[in-house]
Design a protein around this nucleic acid. Structure first.
Length: 566
RNA sequence: UGCCUUGUGGUGUAAUUGGCAACACGUCUGACUCUGGAUCAGAAGAGUCCAGGUUCGAGCCCUGGCAAGGCAGCCA
């Protein structure tokens, strides 16, 4: 551990771990786990948990397991386990072969269930789901006892074995823990441990027709793996007494129980301008509001990856949001800041014009093509330089010209001189318009002495524009992504409307752009289109048809000024 | 309604045996600049949910409120 890391304040989980280490609670052993249910794609909220669990293990010389919480075969699928593994690896973490499944422990769990039955701590209940629900009472009214609560151990064992053998129809019986019907904690009112489901499990196939509930599986799985710190989100807080109850009643060794796995809860990540629940993300996909789980507008890890986010930027983000127990909503601005910070250091610079305005340099030779030197990354000299072709007709960005420039607009205007990056100073001489009065092209002159971007007489210009040759360029499809929702809180809707009404209609704009030819010859994938933003080569991109996704725009102080002037 | 958890600048996160509330993002200045980017320098912005109490001194301790979230699936 470096001194710098040492100096950083600890979050409450780190403080707890350091205390445990000091007390030698687990013999200096630290073992965390990341326990996704394979029923959906991972999102940025999971990334926080992944960074936390794997990060803690790394920091304290421990290990972190990957464990799929696959106790509900009707919702789970291998498609999801594959994507989850890919995402974790992409984020830069490795479980080093410790890939486990709750379903690995089905037999052990079953045997422990028989143990609890024999101890008189569990019973087979014939009540239907609705009946159990009705009899459970309310937080202030105790539950009514199931009429099957006092079956003999022998009868319970026999029935439970028959459940396992497939002798009863789905939903007809459950195995319940016998705890406390009057507990103010609803989870302690004889919770269901096993239910009958005749569904094929993605790993165990048709081997089982009874499946353990989360509460009955999670703590024991942690215990089996020797997990020392079991971290989960706040909503599991009320489950902790149950987590402990099962282990307390299964394990007879007091010393083991003193030092065994313990659950600790932290607040999940929320981001504004997006939704984070798997259910809602699934709905967006199924109803085609987005183009799949990896749509670059999705807060999924695969979506962020396709958008052009880097693992480093996401890890950094997870670090900055911190870990605590209070509910929070992070500004997406922070996430965006983290990618810019990372990409600023790494991205290949390139010039591209998205909304072209034709410029003719009237005093430039007709068919001349000059190859000018351009710097690949001013933040990283080792990335070298490239050539950019300059010709008589060029494109500049329409936004970079104003016929009647307001105060503080420094760019091109009639009679004004600006620099074309890495090229020449040009002066706007004439504005050409069509019959509708729309500007169709600009007639400019250039100063041959300013080649490379500086004038020998020391003349200064106030602006530097990006540009691309109108004849020497490559066309590309540009996908301009923006926030998926136009409301900071997408759930905030008038009576009877849904979060879908808050989808930002401008979250995706597809346009065509002109990029300097270099973009076609490089193997780089992340680019900064100078003065525009960061762009990432989409999976759909081919040598014949380049496709770029806008990851995020550059910080733009002019847009602030111009919008405040309105 | 019962139980559990949480209340610190706009947003997050700190404040290690009580000792002038710190850091990041954002915002606003200014410098510099061949990206109105980056970088650098600086500023504004909370007196810690409220009310009492203990103390020389309370964000931290005590008492009483208030607010927000969670829990009543054979989901996780």
């Amino acid at each position: 551990m470096s001194q710098e890391e040492n100096a950083k304040p600890l979050n409450f989980i780190e403080a707890m771990i350091e205390e445990d280490i000091k007390l030698n609670k687990h013999g200096r052993r630290i073992n965390t786990r990341f326990p996704p249910e394979p029923n959906g794609y991972l999102h940025i909220g999971h990334a926080k948990s992944i960074c936390l669990n794997f990060g803690l293990a790394k920091k304290y010389n421990g290990i972190c397991n990957l464990r799929f919480d696959d106790t509900n075969p009707v919702k789970e699928d291998v498609e999801y386990v594959d994507s989850i593994k890919e995402d974790i690896h992409w984020l830069g973490f490795d479980w080093e072969g410790r890939e486990y499944y709750a379903s690995d422990y089905f037999l052990q769990l079953y045997e422990w269930a028989e143990l609890l039955i024999k101890k008189g701590k569990a019973y087979v209940c014939d009540l239907a789901a609705e009946q159990i629900s009705e009899m459970r009472g309310t937080p202030s009214v105790p539950a009514a006892p199931s009429p099957y609560r006092n079956r003999s151990v022998e009868e319970n064992i026999e029935l439970f074995r028959k459940m396992r053998a497939g002798e009863f129809p789905e939903g007809s019986k459950t195995l319940r823990a016998k705890i406390d019907l009057a507990s103010p904690n609803m989870h302690m009112r004889d919770p269901v441990m096993y239910r009958i489901i005749y569904a094929e499990h993605h790993r165990t196939g048709k081997q089982w027709c009874i499946y353990p509930m989360y509460d009955y599986a999670h703590g024991q799985s942690d215990f089996k793996e020797g997990i020392t710190h079991s971290l989960c989100t706040l909503e599991f807080e009320v489950h902790r007494p149950l987590y402990d109850w099962f282990l307390d009643n299964i394990i007879d060794d007091a010393e083991v129980n003193r030092t065994r796995t313990r659950q600790t809860e932290f607040a999940r990540l929320n981001l504004n301008y997006t939704v984070m629940s798997k259910r809602l993300l699934l709905q967006l996909v199924k109803e085609n509001h987005v183009h799949g789980w990896d749509d670059p507008r999705m807060p999924t890890i695969s979506g962020l990856r396709r958008r052009g986010f880097t693992p480093e930027s996401i890890r950094n983000f997870a670090e900055r949001v911190g870990v605590a127990k209070r509910e929070n909503t992070i500004d997406v601005g922070l996430l965006e800041h983290c990618v810019r910070e990372d990409l600023n250091q790494k991205a290949q610079r390139v010039m591209g014009v998205l909304n072209p305005l034709k410029v003719v340099i009237e005093n430039y030779p007709e068919n001349q093509v000059e190859q000018l030197d351009a710097i690949n990354n001013p933040e990283d000299e080792s990335m070298g330089t490239r050539k950019v072709p300059f010709t008589k007709t060029l494109y500049i960005e329409r936004d970079d010209f104003m016929e009647e420039p307001p105060k503080k607009f420094f760019r091109l205007a009639p009679g004004r001189e600006v620099r074309l990056r890495y090229a020449y100073f040009i002066t706007c001489k004439n504005v050409v318009k069509n019959d509708l009065g729309e500007i169709t092209e600009l007639i400019c002159t250039y100063d041959p002495a300013s080649k490379g971007g500086n004038s020998p007489d020391g003349r200064k210009v106030k602006a530097t524009l990006h540009w691309v040759s109108a004849t020497e360029n490559v066309k590309a499809e540009i996908r301009l992504y923006d926030r998926l929702f136009s409301k900071e809180n997408p759930y905030e809707v008038p009576e009877g409307r849904s979060f879908l009404d808050n989808i930002n209609p401008e979250s995706l704009k597809i346009t065509e752009g002109y990029i300097e030819p270099f973009v076609k010859t490089t193997s780089e994938k992340h680019f900064q289109f100078e003065r525009l933003g960061y762009f990432f080569t989409d999976y759909d991109s081919t040598p014949e048809k380049l496709v770029f996704n806008r990851t995020v725009g550059l910080k733009d102080s002019w847009s602030k000024i111009s919008s405040s002037q309105e």
